[in-house]
Amino acid sequence: MPSVEPLTAELLGPPRALLGGTEVDLGAARRRAVFSVLALRANQPVSPDELITAVWGDRPPGNAEASVYTYVSGLRKLLEPNRSARSASELLVSTGSGYSLRLDPEATDVARFEAHRQRAASLAPGAALKELDEALALWRGEALSGVPGPFAQAQRARLAELRLVTSERRAELALESGRHAEAVADLTALAAEHPLREGLRALLMTALHGAGRHAEALEVFRDTRRLLVERLGIEPGAELLAVYQRLLQGMVAPAAPLRAAIPVRRPPAPPSVVGRQHEVEVLARAVADLSTGRGGSVWLEGEPGIGKSALLAVLLDEAGRRGHQVAWG
């Protein structure tokens, strides 16, 4: 009997089966779905019931079991075209509880993707970056593209998240290696695809800042905050705020140019304010907002002698105690 040609399966894109490096036509969508399940669960038994649920979900047609048998038979002929009708399959074997696709450990691009990721986790930044580049180069589009069924849908979501996490880690390594301009290009595209993913936006801000594009880095924060408020009704999380604060602290202008531009003197000492508890609380909240990256303006208005300057002194004292730069002119 002729020897079986080595089989590889590519699933990080439209599913492909290659015999000895030559692609074979997997056929109709549901046969590709059965192949995808067997390839992702290579060397494990998969029962007919599992295949039916994977392809059709909770409402399979009455002939689902017969269809699975037909798809498996078709795949056997496709993957071992020289096998005689009387000999058992060596690639897609029958087990006591179903079917199993026999593949080498790294015969699928999904397995190779995972292997690159695992190796990168224990390497120095330069070598890890190379491993992640090789992992991401395996992708040919959306995983399991065009494959129907709940199994494929769940795997697409899982693999897409892994791809995104890998891209984020690759960007972190690029930043650690000082490759800020390169990281900006990759992160800009990723952030556009995932505008509400704060970790990506934080990395993009860091990359822009490292590339000397400070104003753009701050604009990313403002844009992200606007999107979060408009779409989700939430404020940025602690990680994004921390990056924003670090960038602000790194870009505060030195005191000398400020004094040269306008007359500046020390703020007055805060007096004892009586009967203005509500106003004091409003001002304290404004300073607290500033500490979390939400700046704004406060308008103090009233008759002469009513105590506006005293309230302002309280505000400036609170801002100074929280570590903000204060100017009084």
Rank of each mutant, 00 (worst) to 15 (best):
residue 160 A to Q: 12
residue 189 A to I: 11
residue 119 R to P: 01
residue 149 G to L: 06
residue 90 E to L: 05
residue 33 A to L: 04
residue 155 Q to G: 04
residue 324 H to D: 04
residue 216 E to D: 15
residue 26 L to N: 01
residue 246 R to Y: 10
residue 227 L to Y: 04
residue 56 W to L: 07
residue 227 L to T: 09
residue 148 P to Y: 09
residue 127 A to F: 04
residue 134 E to L: 11
residue 241 L to C: 14
residue 111 A to Y: 09
residue 176 E to Q: 13
residue 106 E to G: 06
residue 262 I to N: 10
residue 63 N to M: 10
residue 78 L to E: 03
residue 327 A to F: 12
residue 34 V to A: 03
residue 110 V to F: 05
residue 158 R to Q: 14
residue 154 A to V: 10
residue 96 G to K: 13
residue 317 D to I: 00
residue 59 R to V: 15
residue 226 R to K: 13
residue 93 V to K: 06
residue 95 T to G: 00
residue 199 G to F: 08
residue 3 S to E: 12
residue 156 R to G: 13
residue 131 E to W: 00
residue 218 L to M: 10
residue 329 G to C: 06
residue 59 R to M: 13
residue 257 P to D: 09
residue 109 D to L: 03
residue 229 V to Q: 08
residue 190 L to M: 09
residue 227 L to R: 14
residue 39 A to W: 08
residue 204 L to C: 06
residue 43 N to W: 06
residue 53 T to P: 00
residue 232 L to P: 01
residue 160 A to T: 12
residue 32 R to D: 00
residue 324 H to P: 00
residue 249 Q to A: 15
residue 40 L to R: 04
residue 95 T to P: 00
residue 171 A to T: 12
residue 138 L to P: 01
residue 186 D to T: 15
residue 121 A to S: 13
residue 11 L to N: 02
residue 73 S to D: 11
residue 25 D to K: 15
residue 91 L to W: 02
residue 99 Y to S: 04
residue 308 K to E: 00
residue 87 S to W: 11
residue 183 A to I: 07
residue 256 A to G: 08
residue 223 D to L: 07
residue 179 R to D: 15
residue 152 A to N: 05
residue 241 L to D: 14
residue 73 S to W: 09
residue 46 V to F: 00
residue 96 G to N: 13
residue 151 F to G: 04
residue 167 S to K: 10
residue 232 L to N: 08
residue 70 T to D: 10
residue 163 R to D: 06
residue 265 R to I: 02
residue 255 A to L: 12
residue 281 E to L: 03
residue 134 E to R: 12
residue 71 Y to C: 01
residue 49 D to K: 11
residue 57 G to E: 11
residue 82 N to L: 13
residue 104 D to T: 12
residue 203 L to D: 10
residue 258 L to K: 14
residue 137 A to E: 12
residue 262 I to Q: 11
residue 178 G to M: 09
residue 183 A to L: 04
residue 216 E to W: 03
residue 280 V to A: 02
residue 24 V to F: 02
residue 175 L to A: 10
residue 39 A to M: 09
residue 198 E to G: 02
residue 124 A to L: 10
residue 274 V to A: 03
residue 149 G to I: 11
residue 278 H to F: 06
residue 208 L to Y: 07
residue 51 L to M: 05
residue 100 S to D: 09
